[in-house]
């Protein structure tokens, strides 16, 4: 019993850590431009396929190909994020937020069906980061990839938090997000900060995809699911709160693993959406937030 619970906890944390990485990128864009990037989940999916594609170009005898694949995936994803901001955000600056919602839905469609056209509909697997195998912890057994997901997510989330809070660049990024006009007035290049935020956010999405595509495989129509998980994490964590989004994502991962084990995956999904509606109605400020003015 204890063993089973410990195992579920480990699985839940690993899944939640990956969701947290996705939710972090999602909330960064929300804060920077006040708009929802509906294509975020499709960039997670694209990250998975990028990892698959990149690993195909690597020499077959390379040890731990995942260690090479992950940074390369993030780099390409960052480029895609820049592209996203150029085609789906900047032309619509100053228009109502719903325009960006729609433009990113369009990007999501293009990504999903573009990937389908290139790779086909079949699920694919990316190489593991630290290799295959299991680590036996006594009461639970952890796969090397789960360790990798938790470690990579912790490192990346920690790094983003450090950059945002401790560096001059991070302060500029936050200033541009909080009050673009004031930031502009004191000489911050706000469009540049927004572009960098998109690059960073999509790079994190790409990392999420590369990490998840090993254990869970990846197929072109997975995007919507990841987008929803990130979206829900941000809602239950409190709209626009970075820490809240990460906590919310961990909670969702845990919830999904536990309920799926107790009942089924379908029940877990249904309950998650039910819980989402309940949070929206009862605690629109999120589970962890103080009651304050609504931002959405």
């Amino acid at each position: 019993m204890i063993d089973a619970l410990a195992q579920l906890t480990v699985n839940g944390i690993a899944l939640g850590a990956a969701y947290a990485l996705a939710a972090l990128g999602f909330v960064l864009v929300i804060n920077a431009v006040g708009a929802v990037n509906f294509a975020h989940g499709d960039f997670v999916m694209a990250g998975g396929f990028l990892a698959v594609a990149i690993s195909g170009y690597l020499p077959a005898d390379l040890e731990l190909p995942g260690l090479v694949v992950l940074p390369l995936t993030m780099l390409v994803a960052a480029g895609l994020g820049l592209l996203l901001s150029l085609i789906a955000y900047f032309p619509l600056r100053g228009r109502p937020p719903v325009s960006v919602f729609i433009s990113t839905i369009a990007v999501a469609i293009i990504l999903q069906h573009g990937t389908n056209a290139i790779f086909g509909p079949a699920p694919r697997a990316a190489p593991p980061v630290f290799g295959d195998g299991q680590v036996d912890l006594g009461i639970a057994s952890v796969s090397m990839q789960q360790v990798a997901v938790i470690v990579v997510a912790a490192v990346l989330i920690g790094a983003v938090a450090l950059v945002l809070s401790r560096t001059r660049f991070g302060r500029r990024l936050r200033a541009a997000a909080q009050d673009p006009e004031m930031a502009e007035a004191i000489g911050i290049d706000v469009p540049l900060m927004i572009a960098v935020t998109f690059a960073l956010a999509i790079s994190l999405a790409g990392a999420t995809g590369a990490l998840l595509a090993n254990q869970f495989f990846v197929s072109p129509d997975d995007g919507g699911n990841y987008m929803l998980k990130a979206y829900i994490a941000v809602v239950i964590g409190g709209w626009g709160r970075i820490h809240g989004a990460v906590l919310g994502a961990l909670l969702i991962g845990m919830f999904e693993v536990v309920v799926a084990a107790a009942a089924s995956y379908v029940v877990a999904e249904a309950l998650l959406y039910g819980a989402l509606l309940a949070v929206l109605v009862l605690r629109p400020q999120g589970l962890f937030g103080e009651a304050e003015g609504r931002r959405a």
């Binding site: 085609i87 789906a88 729609i102 433009s103 839905i105 369009a106 990007v107 999501a108 469609i109 293009i110 999903q112 069906h113 573009g114 389908n116 056209a117």
Partner: peptide, 9 residues
């Protein structure tokens, strides 16, 4: 379907 997305965008 890709054309769909491009047209909307």
């Amino acid at each position: 379907l890709i054309a769909y997305g491009v047209a909307v965008l």
